[in-house]
Simulated assay, not measured.
Amino acid sequence: MEIIREEFIKLDINLENKKEVIDYIANLLINSNRVRDKGLLLKDVYLREEEASTSMGLGIAIPHAKSLSVKEPTVVFLRLNESIKWNEDKDIKMIFGIFVPAENVDNQHLKILSSLSRKLTDEQYREALLKVKSIKDSERLLQGLNAS
């Protein structure tokens, strides 16, 4: 199962704040038929955001949710043109959205989150994601997530 594909990768987009980012991701998931109910997904994402910030520092935020609205596990990667504020962090430029069905078979979201977090601690990997020129090359860099 492919949790990340070209259609879930958007490079150099202009979004102004966390709310716009989360709404953009929800629309992307609705339009690709990965989500049943945008409102329910947004509710679940914001509930998770209330528990603790999903900013991990290093210019990266990882909003994520388990939701009855999610049909199949999906990872979205957005690289912004300009950094935005995400709670206390002011320099967020890369966003990885992780969304899994509520039943969360085999702790999928934790496996994906763990795999992604390990990769993102590597400075060269982060730099490659910041500099990559095409969606296809981004997908190649992120392919390891499909094995999670």
Rank of each mutant, 00 (worst) to 15 (best):
V21P: 02
Y24N: 02
A52P: 15
V45F: 06
Y46P: 00
K18I: 08
Q108F: 15
K111W: 10
G59H: 06
L58Q: 06
I30F: 00
I98V: 11
M1P: 03
V76G: 08
W86G: 01
A102V: 07
L78Y: 09
D44Y: 00
I13T: 01
A128E: 14
L113A: 05
K10Y: 10
S53E: 14
I3K: 05
A102N: 09
A147Y: 11
D122Q: 13
F99Y: 11
I60G: 03
D23M: 06
L42W: 02
L15P: 07
Q124D: 15
I135C: 08
F99A: 03
R36P: 01
Y46V: 04
I9Y: 02
G97P: 03
M94Y: 04
S83F: 13
I4H: 01
V35T: 08
V70R: 07
K10I: 09
N81L: 15
K66R: 13
A61K: 10
S134P: 10
I4T: 04
F8S: 11
N107D: 15
A128S: 14
D23V: 03
N146D: 10
S114G: 15
L42E: 00
Q108T: 13
L110S: 08
G39H: 08
R34N: 09
R118W: 03
S114I: 05
S32H: 12
K133E: 15
V76A: 03
K133Y: 12
E7A: 11
G39Q: 08
E103I: 12
F8M: 14
R34F: 11
V100T: 14
F77P: 00
F99K: 02
K93F: 03
R140W: 10
D89T: 09
D91M: 07
W86V: 01
L113S: 05
L129Y: 05
K43V: 00
L110Q: 07
A128R: 13
V105Y: 15
E72A: 15
T74I: 04
N146G: 07
R79L: 11
V21N: 01
Y24I: 02
E2Y: 09
A147H: 10
L42N: 00
I22F: 08
E127C: 14
